[in-house]
Simulated scan of single mutants.
Amino acid sequence: MLIRTEAPADILVIDRLLKSVFETDAEADLVMALRENGQLTLSLVACDDDGAVVGHALFSPVLIDGNDLSWQGLAPLAVAKSHQGSGVARALLTEAFLTLPQFGYPACVVLGDPAFYSKFQFEPASAVGLECQWEVPEGAFQVRSLTEASLATLLDGVSGLVEYSAEFNQL
């Protein structure tokens, strides 16, 4: 499996992948809007041995209490149904969590299943005083440091509402 950054030729392939994995086109539309509006920080694809795109992970900027701390939001993460459970998501996230800090992005938030994301060192965001801009189930909004620094150090006294790019409000 090869993990690499998105190329222009991948755009429609990613769109098809997202439409096949999620119940609606909302995530595919979100990715297109983030890309078109320059709100895409990192877009990775996973390719199988034949070169077909079988996974995708996208990161975009978030604000914390109105402050730009260079934190990122993971959304969406998608793996082709035929490849789910085979380590594609782990490979995508491993690469992302190595790449993002190299470009000065110290932490990441995600809205998702705590049982899944805890495998990747995510913890409840409420534990460090962060809350999601949307009403979500307890524990579903999570955070992790991408560096050696603790979340408390990275926050440096900032806490409160985490806001995603405006494109997310169209979901």
Results as ranks from 00 to 15, higher is better:
3 I>K: 06
4 R>Q: 13
5 T>E: 14
6 E>M: 05
7 A>N: 05
7 A>Y: 06
11 I>G: 00
12 L>F: 10
17 L>V: 13
18 L>M: 14
18 L>T: 14
23 E>H: 10
25 D>R: 02
26 A>E: 11
28 A>N: 06
29 D>L: 15
30 L>M: 12
33 A>W: 02
35 R>W: 01
35 R>I: 01
38 G>R: 00
40 L>A: 08
41 T>A: 12
43 S>E: 04
45 V>Y: 05
45 V>G: 04
47 C>S: 09
47 C>L: 12
50 D>N: 14
51 G>L: 02
52 A>V: 01
53 V>D: 03
53 V>N: 01
54 V>G: 02
56 H>V: 01
62 V>F: 00
64 I>W: 03
66 G>A: 04
68 D>T: 03
70 S>A: 15
70 S>Y: 11
70 S>P: 00
74 L>W: 06
78 A>S: 14
80 A>I: 05
84 Q>N: 05
85 G>A: 10
88 V>E: 02
95 E>Q: 15
96 A>N: 06
97 F>M: 14
108 C>M: 10
110 V>F: 08
111 L>H: 11
112 G>I: 03
113 D>S: 12
113 D>F: 09
116 F>A: 01
117 Y>M: 02
119 K>V: 10
128 V>C: 08
129 G>V: 00
131 E>A: 03
131 E>R: 06
133 Q>N: 02
134 W>E: 11
136 V>C: 03
143 V>M: 00
144 R>G: 13
146 L>S: 04
148 E>P: 00
148 E>K: 14
149 A>C: 09
151 L>M: 15
151 L>A: 12
154 L>C: 02
158 V>A: 03
158 V>I: 13
160 G>C: 06
160 G>R: 05
161 L>S: 13
167 E>Q: 15
167 E>K: 11
169 N>T: 13
